[in-house]
């Protein structure tokens, strides 16, 4: 989900935190925070805190070698040069092994404090993905305007304008289809459509996305994982 936004990332491994990643895209506009709790794995062991510097394109090449029904084990030694990936198909007694070279990656770590939020929107992830993709064809920017009754996505481009308005509703049968708006104060923020389209690449990871917006602050787009999260912090565009 994140390999089109960032190329090199440090994966921090620890027994208590599981795997955490913080990465900033090259244009310094988008910050990605990933947390995969130890409980997400069938087995997780980390005797010593470890930083694995990975090239995501290379990692993706290795991960594509496995089939969906195969078990994947990732292993690194104490001061590793390589990450080992072992795929096992227990039915077929098939084992494939790969080793991926690790890299020393210099990266600034930013402190993300808990932010006060003006509003929180939860909507189906596929719905947000469709809006982001459709609106990008109209404009480089997407404005999100939230009031207590609705959230409006607005694009103004060369060929014309477009908007999608969602009103809060609760779907009793399929809660993940609901649209929720929690509002402290109304907000209107503009974001680069390109970055929103990078963010929605995480759509398959979660049925819903939660968007937290605050005036003159980065927006938080959160995809909850079964045990952990993938968060994107996106800096807004400002008027001159």
């Amino acid at each position: 989900s994140i390999k089109d936004s960032v190329k090199l990332c440090n994966f921090n491994c620890s027994q208590s935190q599981g795997i955490t990643v913080q990465a900033i895209d090259d244009s310094r506009v988008l910050l990605i925070a990933l947390k995969i709790d130890a409980g997400s794995f069938q087995e997780f062991r980390c005797d010593k805190d470890l930083v694995l510097g990975l090239d995501l394109e290379s990692l993706s090449k290795i991960l594509k070698q496995g089939n969906n029904e195969e078990y994947l084990t990732l292993m690194a030694e104490d001061s590793p040069d390589n990450l080992m990936a072992v795929f096992e198909d227990k039915k077929k007694d098939r084992i494939s092994e790969f080793s991926l070279k690790l890299m020393d990656i210099d990266s600034d770590v930013l402190t993300i404090d808990d932010m006060e939020t003006d509003c929180t929107i939860t909507l189906p992830a596929y719905e947000f993905a469709k809006i982001a993709k459709d609106m990008k064809t109209l404009s480089e920017s997407l404005k999100i305007v939230v009031t207590k009754d609705s959230v409006k996505f607005n694009a103004e481009g060369q060929i014309g304008t477009g908007s999608v308005i969602l009103k809060p509703h609760t779907d009793m049968d399929k809660p993940e289809e609901s649209v929720k708006i929690e509002l402290n104060s109304p907000v209107a923020l503009t974001f680069g459509a390109k970055y929103l389209n990078d963010i929605v690449k995480a759509t398959s990871l979660s049925s819903t996305v939660t968007i937290k917006l605050t005036d003159k602050s980065p927006a938080l787009f959160e995809y909850k994982l079964p045990s952990g999260y993938l968060r994107y912090y996106l800096a807004p565009k400002f008027d001159d």
Binding site: V29, L31, L110, S217, A235, K237
Partner: peptide, 14 residues
């Protein structure tokens, strides 16, 4: 078009 801001303006480096 509005100019894009940088994420680092909002979060301090540790």
């Amino acid at each position: 078009n509005k100019p894009q801001t940088s994420i680092e303006e909002f979060f301090p480096v540790e």
